Amino acid sequence: MTRNGITTEAANASIDRACRMLRLPTIRSTFEQAVHDATKDGLSYPAFLAELLMAECDDRSRRRSERRVKAANFPREKSLRAFDFDANPDIDPAVVHQLATCEWVTKGQPLCLIGDSGTGKSHLLIALGTEAAMNGHRVKYTLATRLVNELVEAADELVLSKTIARYGRVDLLLIDELGYMALDKKGAELLFQVLTEREETNSIAIASNASFSEWTNTFTDPRLCAAIVDRLTFGGNIIETGTTSYRLAHTKADAAATK
């Protein structure tokens, strides 16, 4: 029996009902254990309330981050913690960890990852995109060919402006595997629109297996290619992942570890 005559069971039932109405799932699920711990530790009422509310806030923040990561549509889970910098000495860990602060995303700067296949570009692209999503940014991942196909279909269905606007609303657009195949004139021009008509506060990150001088194989119009390169390099960040096969080195290391 509590001091005001309400039984503990009745009080717990009221708390449960109130948490449901106010949408406080963390407090609802942890309240009884929190009461036990607070009694054991002798917490004051304000300290007890503060701990409950902070737990709810932390859990909401975690769930929001999970939703942003899911909305980014990453093809697989990749993290910076799992990236083996020893497997590719061409990549400077200090540069990558600085990018992980997401200051470049906040400033709307572009990022280009340039290097041969298997050098860790996609891993870094997804990992840095994940960091951005967890830091509160709206992120979208796509393959270059998939994006171009979507744009061409949107143009044919007369919804191109709507599609471009949708990609323009995200804080960070990640485009993987640029340069793996040449684009026809229409596809190149549509991709150019997405890359150049975004707001200045929005960022673009691109992973490509071709150096900038080879982008004319993808964007066959030299002027169009030059405009895209200028847009992505002006004030941007460039990481050259080189020719060392991160994938092969990592596979050999895993094989050696199992012997």
Rank of each mutant, 00 (worst) to 15 (best):
H250N: 06
V148I: 15
R166T: 11
F234P: 01
N4L: 14
R63M: 13
V139Q: 15
I164E: 12
T258L: 12
R169W: 06
A255K: 14
T119K: 03
L232Y: 01
R166H: 14
G235I: 10
G236N: 00
A38V: 06
Y141Q: 06
N73F: 09
S65A: 15
H97I: 04
L22Q: 06
N209E: 01
T220H: 07
D58K: 15
T220R: 07
L22G: 09
A72Y: 10
K259Q: 00
F234A: 06
G179W: 03
T216D: 01
E177N: 15
T220C: 10
R76L: 08
N73S: 13
T101P: 00
F212C: 03
E56S: 04
L183C: 02
A11M: 11
L147V: 07
T30K: 14
G5S: 05
E197S: 13
A94I: 00
D37K: 09
S122W: 04
N217A: 02
D37L: 13
L143R: 03
T39R: 05
K185I: 04
F83S: 09
L232R: 10
V170P: 08
A71D: 15
D90W: 09
A47Q: 08
K107D: 13
L158M: 03
G42W: 00
A34N: 10
D221F: 00
A72D: 01
Y246V: 10
T106Y: 11
L178T: 02
L173F: 12
T201G: 07
E51F: 01
I238K: 08
R68I: 02
T233K: 08
L147R: 08
L124Q: 03
L173V: 03
G42L: 15
R28A: 02
L80T: 12
L158C: 09
N217R: 15
N12D: 05
F219K: 10
D41Y: 11
I175D: 05
L147M: 07
D221H: 01
R64W: 06
Y45T: 05
I238S: 04
N149I: 08
C57P: 00
K259F: 08
E199H: 11
A257P: 04
V148K: 01
D90F: 05
V152N: 11
G235M: 11
C19E: 10
R23S: 07
A133L: 02
E66P: 05
N202V: 06
R63P: 03
L22F: 03
S213V: 02
E103Q: 05
A210V: 12
N135V: 02
R76G: 00
A13P: 12
P46Y: 12
K252Q: 09
R20T: 02
T196M: 07
L53F: 14
L151Q: 07
R60D: 14
C57I: 03
Y45I: 11
R166A: 09
A165K: 12
A127T: 15
C225L: 10
E200Q: 14
A50C: 10
D176I: 12
D116H: 07
D156N: 12
L151W: 15
G235L: 01
A55G: 12
L172A: 13
D92N: 15
A47T: 14
A154L: 05
A155K: 07
L195W: 01
T243C: 14
T163K: 14
S117W: 03
A13S: 12
R62S: 11
M21S: 04
C225T: 01
E77Q: 10
K186W: 02
T26V: 10
